[in-house]
Amino acid sequence: MNTRRIALAVCGLTVGHARKARARALVDDLSFEVAEGEMLAFVGESGSGKSLTAAAIFGLLPFGLRRLAGSVHLRDTELTALSERALRVRRGRDMGLVFQNPLTALNPSRSVQAQIAETYQVHKGGTRGAAWARARSLLAEVGLASAANGPETYPHQLSGGMRQRVMIAIALACDPILLIADEPTTALDVVVQAQILDLLTRLRQERGLAVLFITHDLALAAARADRVLVLYAGRAVEEGDAARFFRAPCHPYSRALRDAIPAIHGLGGRLTEIPGLPPGPGALPPGCRFAPRCPSAQDDCHQTEPTMRRTAPRCACLHPSLETP
């Protein structure tokens, strides 16, 4: 894996309110890398900062939020140093974004072919005809033969899964380095979910695409991704190889997440839930952020904020479980 080139390197990324200095950072000192052909899964509850990280990489943070620190490298380009205009050129060309809800992420009044072709033409220029030919071949690649060969197709004529394929086709229009899939299957039913994930897996293998897969579903992450990064309240709490991670999570939060997954074969055993709620905006407990909900919290957890371990298994916990699988 180390021989592959690093596609995306995020270092010390911190996102917070633009005007309120005292409010806490929503993404706090986050660092990670994704190599070409690799799929990194971002796991966390809603509000943990997963989607904000994606928005920060794209430079499209919601109004009122700002990147306060950190850098984002896409291959050799420092994205945070680019002007808005230069960054716009990268969006859609070097990095694609797939949204959670394919029902709303496509413009309802323009055909899907036109929306793909537009993306291609904006970045690559060329004739309209060439862009449309490109759109049709992309639609074929993501498995939408009818739209690839048939007449203009509008989003309302497609099912949710098919629309998500269109979103992926748009993201791939200019052969990007990186694809960020933000909960791409959450709005879809299980069978379609598997199909979309198969498609993503195939594409990253065929094209050497780096994929950042954002999900709240740990089982999905473990099954599909090469590596997993767990976020809690804006901070990375554990990072590691997906197989190892699922067998032996070392952070209590990761363990709790794993134990909350209903196993298909596990007839015995109760599902465990995580007591309490993640910290709201503003109020952060001193010490470890997870300590108030942690079943194995000790006194020092409430005072000292843990840092990420430098050696595997990498996690941010004062009392990690380091059992070898």
């Binding site: 859609g92 060309r93 709303t104 992420a105 496509l106 413009n107 309802p108 537009e118 904006v122 229009a173």
Partner: peptide, 21 residues
């Protein structure tokens, strides 16, 4: 709407988003 964010995420400029979408 999401499609506006999606349009920005694929590199369309504000003018094109406003008039084209």
């Amino acid at each position: 709407q999401d499609y506006v964010r999606a349009a920005a995420a694929r590199g369309l400029g504000p003018i094109r988003i406003a008039f084209g979408h």
